[in-house]
Amino acid sequence: MKTRIPDQAFNAYVDGRLGVKAERDVMHALEKDPAGAARVAAWRRQSEALRAALSPIADEPLPLSIVLKIRAAVPEGTGNPLVIGVLLGFLAGLVCGFGLNWIVIH
């Protein structure tokens, strides 16, 4: 049942992760190994079925509990352009006010 192709290369072949040359080598080895070739086909089939069954979960809308959690995890204020804008506006107003006050007094 076991092929002579090393396990890592065999898995990588099933997953389509080999370079061109290594892939060709495995393909040649499989031509003389019908059991190995059948194993490749079966493993690819089951991978596709598993992906098809589980992938759509990442497209589902997030439940409210998780939405609230990730909102809470983003630190308040830091990096928020609106908050930075408001703070800068406030500072600018303060400087202008003091400046005008100084001009009026002197």
Partner: peptide, 19 residues
């Protein structure tokens, strides 16, 4: 809520459901 966090949470959910 950032787009990045959203994608991350979706992936985590899928991974959790596998387990």
């Amino acid at each position: 809520m950032g787009r990045h966090e959203d994608t991350l949470a979706r992936r985590l959910r899928r991974f959790a459901r596998a387990l």
